[in-house]
């Protein structure tokens, strides 16, 4: 009794991915990622410093990534709750944790894959080597930001149960934080990226001629910048997970 089909989780994930790979949704993600990378502002720099273009263009990428991720997660959680799709899925022999985690993993994978792929355009645009470590540091920071947006929009989706409202609420909350706090705050995506980028700039380019932050970030600042979103993600997702799997009513 209560024995779950071991393949159910992967099937639910494939289902979610298949749903996302339909033209309008896929087009939205791909187009937004390419636009985000192409419209970033970059200044002419020497080849040895061209990796700094990755930092200069990050804010616009974070902004568009926030908007797209909020839209997708709100659609998947609040949208399916509001329209009755989740009710139908939870009427099949599936566990609630399987539905919850499969949605999160599938959507995160898709958005990250598309954005990371589009981000590789930077290698060409800024004439960077594929082995440039700051490129991978930037992608890692983007992933951290994606996780944060995912957690916030899932939490707000479950609370509001309205696709439009949760898209707006989660985007405005994250956008508002970015606007309210400057590039030296752990609460803004730019601030965290600045600390992480600045610290690793010293590590991988010790002879840098131009620093994005004066004085350069310390290891502690970089660590806090990594830990802050991870901490928020863990707290929010664990809370929402417990509520979703144990208490949430689907009517």
């Amino acid at each position: 009794m209560n024995k779950t089909n071991p393949k159910t989780f992967s099937r639910l994930m494939l289902w979610e991915i298949e749903g996302c790979l339909n033209l309008p949704t896929l087009l939205l993600i791909v187009a937004s990622a390419i636009v985000a990378v192409l419209i970033q502002s970059s200044s002419p720099r020497s080849l040895s410093n061209s990796y700094i273009n990755l930092y200069d263009g990050a804010s616009i990428i974070f902004l568009i990534l926030t908007l797209v991720t909020c839209t997708l997660f709100s659609h998947s959680f609040a949208g399916s709750l509001g329209k009755g799709e989740l009710k139908r899925i939870l009427s099949y022999p599936v566990k609630r944790w399987q539905v919850f985690t499969s949605k999160i993993i599938a959507l995160t994978l898709i958005v990250f894959s598309v954005y990371a792929s589009a981000f590789t355009l930077n290698l060409y645009l800024s004439s960077l080597s594929p082995l440039e470590p700051m490129f991978y540091i930037s992608i890692f920071t983007m992933f951290l930001h994606l996780l944060l947006v995912c957690a916030v929009s899932v939490g707000i989706s479950i609370a509001l149960r309205s696709e439009l409202m949760s898209t707006l609420a989660s985007f405005l909350l994250l956008f508002g934080l970015d606007m309210a706090f400057d590039y030296r705050s752990y609460l803004s995506s730019n601030g965290r990226f600045t600390y992480i980028f600045s610290y690793f700039q010293q590590v991988f380019h010790p002879n840098f001629s131009y620093s994005i932050l004066e004085p350069p970030a310390t290891a502690q600042q970089a660590l806090i910048s990594i830990a802050t979103p991870l901490f928020v993600v863990a707290i929010v997702l664990i809370g929402v997970f417990v509520y979703f799997t144990r208490k949430m009513e689907v009517d």
Binding site: M1, N2, T4, W15, E18, G19, S80, K83, G84, E85, K87, R88, S91, Y92, P93, V94, K95
Partner: peptide, 18 residues
């Protein structure tokens, strides 16, 4: 509920399919 749903089929009033 999992065991119940394993032995049961459901058709809801609202039809939301992919």
């Amino acid at each position: 509920s999992f065991e119940i749903r394993r032995r049961m089929g459901v058709m809801h009033e609202t039809n939301v399919y992919p």
